[in-house]
């Protein structure tokens, strides 16, 4: 699904140059569940942002679904992103002013999907993650686990080819964390490709492949026995 070759991301200020990613080579196949691990500041989130086209690489090649995307402008990246990628964040990133249903619907607003179909898809996905009974609630009225389920629903509703999860359990207690991980596992089993950044070895065990990073490089990869 995606191939990265010599992908680098360097942040420059007037006085300092920081290499966040240093010539990364990484392939991820369709249907994989990949966990990315490493200490804070090793470049996990930067890698995920590049993968999700939220950021652009300083150099290297990034082929997504057979097309080179490294040199695309912001508007083209937005097009590729919204057609193919769903996001789940550690801090949920729900819009406080919108209800649960509206937050989920937001992911379809920028697709050419009619209002009736949007409503139907939102209901389906809410049922799927078990949040339908909270459809009219505001995020602030939900528990952390429930908020993350809304975020998952939002990531799923546009039926993306790839789901990127940035420490999806980081703000959750153990029970809610496990609940979210089981949900991701279930999604993967039903065909979704998932790349997840995590600090938790236990949660990394849900993935089929674990990529360990250090100082902006891939230190090692290990596949879980099937």
């Amino acid at each position: 699904m995606l191939q990265m070759r010599g992908l680098s991301r360097i942040y420059r200020t007037d006085t300092v140059e920081t290499t966040a990613l240093d010539a990364i080579d990484l392939d991820i196949a369709s249907g994989e569940f990949v966990a990315i691990m490493g200490p804070s500041g090793c470049g996990k989130s930067t890698l995920l942002n590049l993968m999700g086209m939220l950021d652009t690489p300083s150099s290297g090649s990034y082929v997504f679904d057979g097309k080179e995307v490294a040199g695309l402008n912001e508007s083209r990246l937005a097009e590729v992103r919204k057609a193919n990628i769903g996001f789940i964040f550690q801090s949920f990133n729900l819009v406080d002013e919108l209800s649960v249903a509206e937050n989920i619907e937001l992911a379809l607003l920028y697709h050419k999907v009619g209002s009736a179909e949007r409503k139907s898809r939102v209901e389906t996905v809410m049922d799927r993650v078990g949040i339908a009974h909270r459809a009219r609630h505001r995020p602030s009225q939900l528990s952390g686990g429930q908020q993350q389920r809304v975020a998952v629903a939002r990531a799923l509703v546009a039926e993306p080819k790839l789901i990127l999860a940035d420490e999806p359990t980081g703000n959750l207690d153990t029970n809610h964390g496990e609940e979210v991980m089981r949900m991701l596992q279930s999604l993967n089993r039903s065909g979704s490709t998932i790349v997840m950044v995590t600090h938790s070895p236990a949660h990394a065990d849900y993935a089929g492949r674990v990529v360990n990073m250090l100082d902006g490089r891939v230190l090692q990869e290990r596949r879980r026995a099937a």
């Binding site: 508007s75 996001f87 937001l106």
Partner: peptide, 16 residues
């Protein structure tokens, strides 16, 4: 700002 970020992640263009 946060909401704008979320919307952009979800595919909103600058003009949206």
């Amino acid at each position: 700002t946060k909401e704008i970020g979320i919307r952009k992640v979800l595919g909103a263009r600058t003009r949206d």
